[in-house]
């Protein structure tokens, strides 16, 4: 059976565009506003939603997503309520890919086996753990695989290409999250000059679709990236707008 994530990339490719992967922090600015924004993003063309689980110590995130996480924690959002929200979103959007995006500790704290069962029941397609590199991912993979849930791996600008191959090896129902810049999440005025070359090199080594993220906030940046990737990921720009205006109605990107 082909998974929703594979289908999402295939559909975008067939339509001659890159897949649009949209990140939101669960429960921000409120659980209702988050879910409404997720609906708006699907209506606005998002192929895959990344649902961010707020964590007390978001050390890989820039200011926008950090503040969203702290606010979501204050209003009581946790891993359980994030998974419950994912299940409701799944019920409304049967085709959209859903990725549960988290730091390791909440997942580990729940127990990877229990997590995998709950994620499957919620209709989550894949899990991304920010601080879980190749060396440490075995246990989580072992729990997710029998449930047919993918693991989204990160590839950084300084990841050697041989390691990129090792990272992609054996994964299914997923895509490669190619980080465009060294640093934390957040909007940036410009992307690195060698990004196109780097994305081409990554794609030459892996069969999985490659989506580029970190620092992408405009349609112009997204289009430029999609000449060299199968999809693009937008997070901070959406979270910031949602925080400022309370909704994501209308076109997702300017």
């Amino acid at each position: 059976m082909t998974g929703r994530i594979e289908k999402a990339f295939a559909k975008a490719k067939a339509e001659g565009r890159g897949a649009f992967v949209a990140y939101l922090t669960a429960g921000y600015p409120s659980m209702d506003a988050f879910e409404a924004a997720a609906d708006d993003l699907v209506a606005g063309g998002a192929d895959i939603l990344e649902i961010g689980v707020p964590f007390s110590d978001p050390f890989a995130d820039g200011a926008v997503i950090r503040q969203a996480a702290y606010a979501a924690l204050r209003n009581g959002t946790d891993l359980d309520s994030s998974i419950a929200a994912a299940a409701r979103i799944r019920a409304r959007h049967p085709e959209t890919g859903i990725v549960l995006f988290s730091y390791c500790n909440p997942l580990f704290s729940k127990g990877y086996g229990k997590l995998a069962g709950e994620a499957q029941a919620a209709g989550i397609d894949a899990v991304l753990a920010v601080d879980l590199p190749l060396e440490e991912r075995g246990e989580l993979l072992d729990a997710l695989r029998p449930r047919g849930i993918g693991l989204v791996p990160l590839v950084a600008p300084n990841t050697p290409l041989d390691r990129v191959e090792q990272i992609a090896a054996g994964l299914e129902n997923t895509f490669i999250y190619a980080i465009t810049v060294k640093g934390v999440t957040g909007e940036r005025a410009g992307l690195p000059a060698d990004l196109a070359e780097r994305l081409d090199a990554i794609r030459s080594r892996v069969a999985l679709p490659v989506a580029a993220g970190f620092g992408i906030s405009t349609m112009e940046q997204a289009r430029a990236v999609c000449g060299h990737a199968d999809g693009f990921i937008v997070g901070s720009a959406l979270v910031r707008r949602l925080g400022e205006t309370g909704s994501l109605k209308g076109p997702p990107l300017s």
Binding site: D131, E135, P157
Partner: peptide, 20 residues
């Protein structure tokens, strides 16, 4: 040595894997 029994390891974002 990277692990001490079931503790330790290298739980970092991928960007820090190469510097480590």
């Amino acid at each position: 040595k990277t692990h001490y029994g079931k503790f330790g390891g290298m739980y970092v974002a991928e960007t820090l894997a190469a510097p480590l």
